[in-house]
Structure formats: C-alpha cells, structure tokens
Design a protein around this nucleic acid. Structure first.
Lengths: 338, 338
DNA sequence: ACTGCTTCCGAAAACGATTACGGTCGTATG
DNA sequence: CATACGACCGTAATCGTTTTCGGAAGCAGT
C-alpha cells in the first residue's frame, strides 16, 4: 500500500506539499502540482481513508440504511438499485460515496444505527422504511448527523424528507373506484408499523367519507410484504363476507401473489374484484393489466441526494433554497384491473 | 462526541487503561474494567472508527460490491437481501460489519474497486457478477486484500469462490427435456460477459452431444436481464423458424416476461413450448407452474462469509480446513412447464 | 534489607493524512 | 543597500485510537 510518505520520498519533496498539491490548495507551484499528480497516478496512490477522516473529521461517505432479510423491505431491490443510481450521480459530483448500511434482521435497527453513527462511519445518512414514530430520527438529530428520510414519520426533528404521495394515490384510486360504482372498497395494510400505512388508510377513509361511504374494518386486510403474503391474503379476501368489490394496495410486491391467489379462489381480478396497486417491473405483465401508480425512481434518488446535501454544512451552499419536504407525485397507469 | 480522552478524564485514569479494559486485554484489574465498562455505557462512548482503524490497520468492515442501476443485476428482488442476511449472521459473530459498496452505473467497476481498496475502506471484499475474465480478481490479489467471489472466472488468483451449480442445472434440465422427447432445445444466454453464461452453455452443448443432439446457434437467444427483456425475447423465440420445443434459462427475472410474451404470441408455455428456469419468489405463482431450480440464499450467504473468514488472517483460525471452492447445489422443483 | 515475581497502570510512540505556522528564497521598492 | 513582500515549501502539531514498554507497588523468599 503506497502512502503519502512514499509518494513524497519518490518526488523528494515533503508530505505537506504533496497533500496540498493533491487537495488543490493555492500555495503550491503549478509545475510541482503537475509532478505530484503524475506520480500519484503512476504509483497508484489513493489517500488512506482512516488517516484522512481522522484528521478531517469527516469520511466522505453517505450511508443508506436498510434492513436485510427476505421479508423485511417492502420494496424489492430493483427498487433500491434504481434509487441508489440516482443518489450516486449527484453524490459523485461532490466526491462523496454511497454505501448501503446493512442492518441484519436479528439486530435492532436503532442499536445498529447508534453504533454506526457513534463510530463516525458516515457523514450523512439516508433512512428508509420510516415508522409511525421513528426513534432513529431523534437519534440522528441528537448526534447532529445530517440526514434525510425517504418517508415521513410523526416524529419530526426538522430534517428534510421525501415521501411518495400515498395520500394522492389514495384519493385518485378511491375516487376512480367510486366513479366506477364501487361501494365496498377494501385495502391491504402495509406491514408492520410503517407510517405510510396510516397516511394511506386515513386518506382512504376521508375520501370515502366525502362520498358517504366508509372503510369497513373487515375490509382492511393484513399481509406480509412478499409474493407469498399476497397469495395468502387473497384467500382471506376471497372468503370474506361480504367481500369487497375492489382492493387498493400500496405494496408492489404483493400483487403478483394476490392475482394468483384470487384466481385460484375463483375470484377473477378486474372482473369479480377491482384492483389498484403500485407499478413494478413485475406488475407490467399481469393480466388483466394492473391499474397502478408509478414514478421515476432514479429522479427520486437524485432529489434525495440534493436535499441531503442541502443540510450538509460542507456542501449546502450549492443547494440553498430547496424546499426541504417533498411529496413525490406518482402517475396513474390505467389498466383494466380497476 | 465523547472520545476515549473524556472517558479517561471522567474515571481519572489513563486512556491506555481505558482502551485495554474495553478491548478485553489481560493486564487490567477486574474492578477497574467494570468501572470502565459502566462509564462507557453511561457516557455512550463508542470508539471512533477512523482512529481505531488507523492504528489497527483494519476497519472491521467487509464490503459487498454491487453495481447500481435498474438493469444491472442478474438476480431477482429478494436475492441479495437474503444472501446479505446470511453473511451478516456470520460476520456479526466476529464483530465485523457488512456494507454494500455501490458502484454507480456510470463509473467503471474496476476503477471504483481500485479506489475503495486503496483507501483502505474494507478489510475484505465479496465480489459478485463475475465476468468471464474478471480483472478485479487480479486487482484484489495484487493489493493482498482477502476476498471471495460469488461466481467463478477464468481469471484465477487462488481465492476461494462459491458458485451456483449451473453445470449441474444444465445437465439435469437438458436430460429431463430429452427424456420428455425434446430434440430442439434452446437457451437464453445471460447478459453481458458473465462467466456463468459460458459454463451453462458449454455444459448444455456437452449433454446434448452425449445424446447425439446439438445446440443450434439459432436457438441461443439473448435478452436483457429484466422482465421487459424476457417479454422481448419471447417474441423472438416465438417467431424463430424452426422454433425450439423447449427453453432453458438461468435468469430468474426474465421468466415472468417470457411467459407473458409467449402467451401473447400464441405460444403456450408448458404446452407449445417447455420451459425450465430458476426459482424466485416471483416465479412461484406462474401457471403452468415453472419447473425450476432453487437454493437457500441465506445458507449461501453463510457459506460465503465462512469461506471469506478463512482467508482473513485475523480470523482464519476458526475456519481452517474448509474447502475453498464450492459448487453450490440447486434442487429441482418439478412444475408442469417442462 | 535485598532480590525476584506478579499485577496493574501510565507514558509515549505509532498509524496516515491535513493544515497552521514559519522559514527561505527572489524580486521589487524606497 | 536595506527592507518588505509574495511565492513556495518544510516542520510539526493534530485527529482518536491501540499497543509496547517500563515503572510502581505489593508480596514472598532468603
């Protein structure tokens, strides 16, 4: 491993000058800078991360926290891979690197986050899968770590967030179904204590109430966020009496299993029961075509990164004046399922 | 941020003793150790990562390199999340953390890897999506970084690897199809320059040859590793003349689109054309049921981690004697598609 | 009282980078 | 000629740990 010392010896100058040359400081002759850059390239020198960040107090990495395990995320990794890509393109312009902080399913997320921030692992954090009351927000706030969350929470410490417009989705979906004559609309509640579940259900209730309808407790179904979960809940739905005539759901993974489960139970999607959901690469080939909501994941990632930079002291100058909270719109793809 | 200095001042002892107490060294009175541990807990002290790894020369993190972007990974949604989970459970026993190193789609993977290893970011690396000739192997070998790859390559620097048994899969699948009377078998070539494509195709050819059959070049189809790619290639297959009577493919994402594409083209999977593929959560609800190969992703992750530890000098004592190369078996799930 | 062992702890040197500070040149200015 | 100044670069302190080394204190044996 070649360090700055070797590089300095090779060039027969001091390490101070080498460092200054590499970091683009003013006090260095252009000719020397050129020589340093050249030699660094030749010897394959890259500043050691630990040394640099110990001195600078910052690491140059942004962490995206996510939980591993087969049934944890409500999103597939195709989801995150696209978001990551958007985040990266912005961060790389500032010489920042994105890494995914992987919290294993048998470790407490709060404890995990605490450990990683106390270690000083990342300069900033992106949180996802936000809960109804998310203690992680307070933790990061207390430690004064810049962060942004993909998703709102009742817990609010003033950080920026971006959240998908689940309320808008509820509104459009419910109104569409009502217009089509449905009076008995059910929903599938996203798993766990995710905040989006409450936002979505509440708005559904409101819109239904505006039309003199109600969301029956019997028509709120729970399912694990997986294909198998969708299949399982399908049978519940099929056998519930009275059976809802339409289902709206926010999880894009469930729907594949849901379709199959309903069919197996003799309830034809789009005919015996209307379905409105979220787009994913998997849903595009369902038949009947799923009526669903979609968004540009890459753009979402870009926006996440930009808003995050706006709260990072060392970078914010470039991004002042951004609105700090964004409700990310989704667009409706009209299918024949509902 | 409370450092070891504050902790030492608080306890009125030296930082050396604090460090020794925390790291479980022998030379420290049990009573003092207890006091230190207690105070550390109380003040919420966690050793600073940069300082520690600068001194120790190791970071305690293992990186799993992957490329971001919507159409990069050849694996399905839950694939990596499950593998990660397995890796984690082993690593956490050794106080190692797993992070995903996210290489953006517009950066050269080799350059990215070079940068991160030179920075000393991770103690060890797990590589995936190995190419036919993978230069990253030589890079890591040159820098003497312990690593393991999920997948073989013609490039071999003596590192351990684990690879799915694509050859076994080819053998079982082809023989099964031949037994069912198929003489015109086609395959879908995995995208890009992934080594598994060659392994798989070569073995298919061999097995066919053993039975006096050949793999026609016209029956090797190329597709992007996405649902849409599967849909697109379906039309190619349907319109090829002569059309193969069976298709074997190793990519589990493609198959959803493939089914739909074939149906839309009037070619019924399992009836007009046999299909054998790989299991994923998405494939389990296809009809006719997909004949496919499956494996325990979590166990795969566990094994990856164990074999990686066996080449990490600081940890290998626990795992000596492991075979360093593993062909990971897959089991056949008999469906009605082929 | 002296020596020889433990047992425990403090002092200080690393690790590899960044950066404040000061020193050495030339050159220009009075 | 003396002084001032700017351009450039070297020296050394610093970040927070770990770890080596040696010292102090206590105790046992002679």
């Amino acid at each position: 491993m070649t360090g700055i010392r070797q590089l300095a010896d090779y060039l027969d100058i001091s390490i101070g000058t080498v460092s200054r040359a590499l970091n683009g400081k003013a006090d260095v002759n252009e000719e020397t800078r050129r020589r340093v850059l050249e030699a660094a390239e030749k010897l394959g020198y890259v500043p050691n991360q630990s040394g640099r960040s110990l001195r600078k107090g910052s690491t140059g990495v942004v962490g995206f926290m996510m939980q591993t395990g087969p049934e944890i995320t409500s999103q597939g990794d195709a989801f995150f891979m696209s978001v990551f890509d958007g985040v990266q393109t912005v961060l790389s312009r500032h010489k920042l690197d994105l890494v995914a902080l992987l919290c294993s399913s048998n470790e407490d997320p709060y404890a995990y986050l605490q450990r990683t921030v106390a270690r000083g692992f990342a300069d900033a954090i992106i949180l996802s899968a936000t809960r109804r009351n998310d203690a992680r927000f307070e933790l990061l706030h207390r430690h004064d770590i810049p962060f942004i969350s993909l998703g709102r929470s009742l817990t609010d410490v003033g950080q920026p967030w971006i959240d998908l417009d689940f309320e808008g989705m509820a509104e459009v979906a419910i109104k569409r179904l009502i217009k089509a004559g449905h009076k008995d609309i059910g929903i599938i509640w996203p798993h766990g204590d995710l905040n989006l579940g409450y936002l979505f259900a509440d708005r559904c209730r409101e819109v239904l109430a505006e039309h003199g309808l109600a969301l029956s407790e019997d028509h709120i179904f729970r399912a694990k966020p997986s294909e198998a979960g969708g299949y399982a809940v399908a049978h519940e739905i099929a056998s519930r009496f009275p059976r809802p005539s339409a289902i709206v759901l926010v999880n894009e993974i469930l729907v594949t299993g849901l379709y199959k489960g309903l069919e197996d139970a003799g309830v034809k999607p789009g005919k015996d029961i209307a379905i409105i959901g979220r787009y994913s690469p998997q849903t595009q080939f369902l038949s009947p075509a799923l009526t669903c909501f979609t968004l540009s994941l890459r753009d979402l990632g870009i926006s996440l990164a930009e808003h995050l930079l706006s709260v990072m002291p060392a970078y914010q100058s470039n991004y002042v004046g951004q609105t700090s909270r964004v409700i990310w719109p989704m667009t409706l793809i009209e299918g024949t399922s509902g």
